[in-house]
Structure formats: C-alpha cells, structure tokens
Simulated assay, not measured.
Amino acid sequence: MSRTVPPPVLDSLRGLALGDAFGDRWFHPPVDEASAEVASRLVRPGPWHWTDDTAMALVLVCHLRAHGEVRSAALAREFAAEYTAVPHRKYGPSMHQVLRAVHAGEDHVAVTGALFGGQGSHGNGAAMRVAPLGAWFADDLAVVAEQAERSARATHAHPEAVAGAQAVALAAALAVRSRGELAVPRAEFLHEVASLLPATDVRSGLRIAARLPAGTSVRHAAVVLGSGHLVSAQDTVPFALWSAAGHLDDLVEALWGTVAGWGDMDTTCAIAAGVVAARSGTDAVPPAWSAAQEPLPDL
C-alpha cells in the first residue's frame, strides 16, 4: 500500500537535497577564494547537482511510503538498485563495495559487518540521508530511534554510525514537534538529542557542542567538533547539528554557517538543512537557488 508522504517529510527531504547540492559546489575553489565568497554570501554558479546523500534519502522516503516502516534487508536492496542504476552520485569507497555486493545477492548483514576488520563502517552515510525519517515518525521519539537504527543497519554495522543516524533523525523529529513554537536555545536542543542516544562518541560530541559558549565561531566549532574531514559519524554529526540548532528558523543562514565549517560540506549541509527544513520548510529559499538546484523527482 502506497502512503501519502507527510508535508514535514517533504520539507525535510527538500531541505536535505538543497543542502547537499549547495554544499557540493564548494569543494573545488581554493580555500582563500572560497572563504571570501562565503563571507560575502556569493553563491556558486549552477547547476547544483545533488549527490549520494539525496539519492539515498529519496530511496528511504519511497521505502517508508511503500512499507510504513524500515525493513533493513529490503532497504539495502533498494539502495543497491539505485546505486546500480546511477552509480556516479559520489558514493564513498566502502559503499561501492557494500552496494555492489548486495546487488549481487549477498546478505547485507554479512557484507556490512565484514567491513574494516569486522567492525563495520562508522562513516557518516547513515546520518546524511535520515532526516526525513525523523520527520516521518516525529510523533514518537522511541520509534524514531528504532527506525533510524534499522535504516542505518541496511549499510552500516558500527554503533557510531547507528548513533549518528539516530541523532540526526531525533533532531529532525524535535524540529517537527516544535513547529509553530519558539525555537529552543541551541544548547537545550543539543542536550535533548544527546539525552536520547546510547553512550557513544556521537553523544559525547553533541554534549561538547552543547557546551560551546554563545558566540563561538563556526571555524572554532568545526575545529573542536570536526566537520566531516574524517567522513565519520562522530566527526560529522555533532558539528552539523550544532549548526542546525543555531539556525532553526533560518534555512539559508544555516547553510551559509554550515558550509563555512568546510570539511564534508555536501553531507554537513544536507544534515543541517534536512533538520532545519523539517521545522521551517523551504519557502524562504531564494528563487535563484531553487533554479540552480537539480530538481527532485515527483513524489
């Protein structure tokens, strides 16, 4: 049975895709040039193509529309089918390995668990795609955490990757639940997300993020928390959620603030924008940005 996609889920997905495409455009200019352009709010020229972050988020939303819940084995096969159809979306090295093996018929649990000497991947791929899931199940935070774990385990076996996905999904759910109310302070928002997580480096990173003083610069936050240079959940999620939590009512400013942390910019921007848009929607996005962005398929 095909379900209607709730409006906050579509908002989160659209925000995620915008952040992904916006952030991806900043990888190539020299840092000095790019820093000046970000400071001056000069957007990069289009077209802004989205990457694997959005491709996998689309698969996840379509999966929820079809099943109403996450079925990890089926989701893994659907990720693999999308990858096989369009493999040029900048998937990470381990995902090439996982998705090719799953597409060839191997068991996703065995494949993901065998990575990195049997530890599994703690990459940020499970976190980058999951914000719309948090918006989908926002009525029940325990369900959000459970479903986010299932979605992560389709491709990532490591507890940090699972915690990263749970953190982003819970942040998106809290953003949806706060629609129509005043945004909570950054520290309070981050503490609440952390309180719902298992004991992991991701949780510790969020607690550190919550303790950063008001007025902390983006660059300082990125140095303290990490902004995805290691492409791990624990090196990506705390910064992305710190950025989102400081701009819950301003999607555009959230993107400028997030990209100024450099690092894995398509993913940090996708995470932050997926969370913020779950609360704010995307109506305030400049028309020129929407025109530059690669369109999403009609859901």
Rank of each mutant, 00 (worst) to 15 (best):
234 Q>I: 01
83 Y>A: 06
97 Q>N: 03
25 R>G: 13
11 D>A: 06
163 A>L: 08
201 D>F: 03
72 S>E: 10
168 V>C: 00
177 R>W: 04
68 G>L: 12
133 L>E: 04
62 C>G: 15
138 A>L: 02
207 R>C: 15
225 L>W: 00
286 P>H: 11
113 G>C: 14
53 D>S: 09
153 R>S: 10
53 D>V: 12
267 T>C: 08
41 R>S: 10
128 M>L: 11
49 H>F: 14
84 T>L: 13
118 G>D: 07
219 R>W: 11
86 V>S: 10
90 K>V: 13
32 D>V: 12
16 L>V: 10
229 H>G: 03
125 G>H: 13
245 A>R: 07
280 S>R: 06
76 A>W: 05
297 P>D: 07
22 F>E: 03
146 E>I: 00
22 F>K: 02
6 P>A: 13
262 W>T: 05
173 A>T: 06
241 L>V: 04
217 S>Q: 06
298 D>N: 05
196 L>I: 00
278 A>V: 01
38 V>C: 08
263 G>D: 05
131 A>D: 00
255 L>H: 04
23 G>A: 06
44 R>M: 15
62 C>P: 00
101 A>V: 07
144 V>Y: 07
111 V>E: 08
193 V>Q: 04
190 L>M: 11
224 V>T: 15
21 A>K: 01
72 S>V: 02
78 E>F: 01
52 D>K: 10
132 P>C: 08
219 R>T: 15
73 A>C: 08
187 A>V: 07
235 D>H: 03
179 R>D: 14
130 V>F: 04
87 P>M: 04
12 S>T: 03
79 F>L: 11
229 H>S: 11
125 G>D: 10
284 A>Q: 14
147 Q>A: 03
91 Y>W: 03
79 F>C: 05
236 T>H: 00
8 P>D: 05
164 G>Y: 09
149 E>C: 13
39 A>F: 01
34 A>F: 05
36 A>G: 11
99 L>S: 02
29 P>L: 08
75 L>D: 07
13 L>F: 03
208 I>F: 02
143 V>W: 10
199 A>R: 13
29 P>A: 01
47 P>I: 09
49 H>K: 08
144 V>W: 09
97 Q>S: 14
